[in-house]
Amino acid sequence: MELFLVNLIAATLRVSTPILLAAIGETFTERAGILNLGIEGIMFFGAFVGFFVADASGSLWIGFLVAILSGVLSGILMGLLSVSLGVNQHVSGLGITLLLTGLSLYLFRLVYGGRSTPPSIEPFQQLTPFNDIPIIGPITQQYFLTYVTFLVIIPLAWWILYRTRFGLNIRAVGENPEALDAAGVSVYLIRYLTLGIGGGLMAAGGAFLSLASLGAFSHGIISGRGWVAIAIVIFGNWDPIRVMIGALIFGGTNALQLRLQAMGLQLPIPYETFLALPYIVTIIALVLAGRNASYPAALLKPYKRE
């Protein structure tokens, strides 16, 4: 039982990491007033770019950094459509997801099409800082990127949003862009910056899956995790700490179903029930949080200077 719990906690942190990275990215863009439905495609593209560049360069880190760059560029593309041109955010975001999904599959087929076995690379190794200590040892056996996400990215995101001038501007641009404009701050610039940062984090989440979790790229690598991230942002009320809690709930459910599957229990229900469980839990969490959700006032509204 103790072993089961320890493994569950360790797996929860691992499974939550990519969702959390993407959800923090989406928190930034939505705080600035942009719903980025490109998230699913940006994660997918990040997973592909990370894998391909790591494979070609022989360096996981170069792959990871180029993946982040691909996400920043994707975020800027979203900005071009939703900020500069003021296009409907649902449609432009979904368009970006479809474009990047198609693009990733196209390039993957071009590069690896001829192979009979799916390509793979040696993924990131987990750190084992407290190897000899019981309980703490297995729980702290995590990827470096998981440490960075929970110990650096989350506090940093919170600090930026609530304790810096830039964060104040982000929040203001999502609530009352006219006022910010009147104060002489460029609404466009803030939105582009957050879309760039957000895109980079989303792609990092995707690349975590291909470079750490799997060491491979496949069609189903993201399978709706981007949409879950958006749900988690609403659940977390656009606050990095609460978003982290949401990601842990999803990650925990996912880790639980993985554990249960691994135990090989003979249950009278199909294993897909477990796979679907995190999505169902996410919807329930959304319903419970829905009453208190306070959307950024300018979300979905393009800003036009008259």
């Binding site: 949409w227 958006i230 897909e272 796979l275 679907a276 829905g290």
Partner: peptide, 19 residues
């Protein structure tokens, strides 16, 4: 309950894939 339909309909797609 004023739950955003964009997110729920997207999540329902994933659930349907497993069904």
């Amino acid at each position: 309950l004023a739950v955003d339909e964009v997110v729920t309909t997207l999540l329902m797609n994933s659930i349907m894939a497993y069904i």
